[in-house]
Design a protein around this nucleic acid. Structure first.
Length: 350
DNA sequence: AATACGGGGTT
DNA sequence: AACCCAGTATT
């Protein structure tokens, strides 16, 4: 065990990346980085981290912002509940804890959007508390090194790996230990074709000795995708278009979009042209274009989307849930990537 | 225990 | 196309 840790820390000392959130002890900044990095690669999240910290340097800055602005800053990063929960938690800290980030694991994990992983990360890195972080990297490194085939996405697996990770944890330097283990998984003990022959731990690695590297870790469930059909309406009148906010408990909650008709099946061009435009209870319109289908692929969904562009008369009566937005203001709204791409096609929203 | 929740990189 | 990424909340 000590051999494992000594080699790991030596490796970390030599090969760790420079990461902006490693240069601070500020729990707030560490928190932001950990939320951004949930299910997100460092390369994808780094710029967001810088912009977020620049706009919201402290937890009270974040707490006093409007959610729309937080979501706009998060646009394109995905899993938007992270941004909504971040904002809600900032308000909790500002209101209940005088703007001071809590320094106990039990308090930290009660905050919205913070689960076992993030609570352990903040507790260990910002406050040197002995809690092991267990993320995808840690599952991979531990399952291979110790040869554990319990599925990591089972209740039993979570229990076993949590126990093991906390056993292995260096209580004297938990923050360093956790980051070293995760960095090792991210750079050396990677999912596909890890370079085991030049790995400093291979002489005592169970998977390497038994040719099990490509079989570990074990994961039993696979996510399957389902289809959705989206028809967006770009409804123009003069210099304005119509937009709406997604408020349902569904994908992209609280983001904005072009008025949407969702169908449970694909619609033909003829059906699209014959279909009365929803959202308009009265008034003339003139369909000027129907886009190609754009296939938007997410982890658990495939969205087939088209846009219908139409001129609507000034006196059109619209559902009151729709917003009339001046074209030059479109970019102020947080929109899903899919909508952003459509707007770009029309040279709107930037 | 199972599913929803984004977007992008890698193989 | 499948898999994965410094996971969490909800059902």
């Amino acid at each position: 065990m000590q051999e494992f840790k000594t080699a790991l820390y030596k490796w970390y000392h030599l090969y760790q990346r420079y990461l902006p959130w490693r240069q601070t002890n500020d729990a707030y900044k560490i928190w932001i980085s950990e939320i951004i990095l949930q299910q997100t690669r460092v390369a994808q999240g780094t710029d967001y981290y810088h912009r977020f910290i620049e706009r919201f340097p402290t937890v009270t800055d974040l707490a006093s912002a409007h959610e729309d602005e937080v979501l706009k800053l998060w646009q394109g990063l995905g899993y938007y509940s992270r941004a909504r929960n971040l904002h809600a938690a900032a308000k909790t800290i500002a209101n209940n804890y005088s703007g001071i980030f809590p320094n106990k694991y039990e308090t930290i994990i009660k905050l919205k959007g913070i689960g076992p992983y993030t609570a352990a990360a903040i507790a260990s890195i910002a406050f040197s508390l002995p809690f092991a972080t267990i993320d995808g990297n840690v599952y991979r490194v531990l399952s291979r090194y110790f040869g554990i085939a319990t599925p990591i996405d089972s209740t039993q697996g979570k229990k076993e790996f949590t126990l093991l990770a906390n056993e292995v944890l260096d209580k004297n330097a938990p923050g360093l230990h956790n980051q070293a283990l995760m960095e090792f998984g991210a750079l050396q003990c990677v999912p596909k074709s890890p370079k085991c022959f030049e790995c400093p731990l291979h002489s005592s690695c169970h998977a390497f000795a038994n040719d099990l590297v490509s079989n570990l870790p074990v994961k039993e469930k696979k996510t399957r995708q389902s289809l959705r059909y989206f028809y967006y309406y770009l409804l123009e009148s003069g210099s304005t278009i119509l937009m709406e906010k997604r408020t349902q408990n569904d994908i992209w909650k609280n983001l904005y979009q072009l008025p949407l008709l969702e169908s449970d099946r694909e619609l033909s061009d003829q059906e699209i042209l014959n279909c009365e435009i929803p959202f308009l209870s009265r008034g003339k319109y003139n369909i000027t274009a129907v886009s190609e289908t754009r296939k938007h692929i997410l982890s658990h969904r495939i969205i087939m989307a088209r846009t219908i562009r139409a001129e609507i008369s000034e006196e059109s009566v619209i559902s009151k849930a729709l917003l009339r937005v001046n074209k030059k203001d479109i970019s102020k709204f947080a929109v899903p990537r899919l909508v952003e791409l459509f707007l770009k096609d029309y040279k709107l929203g930037e």
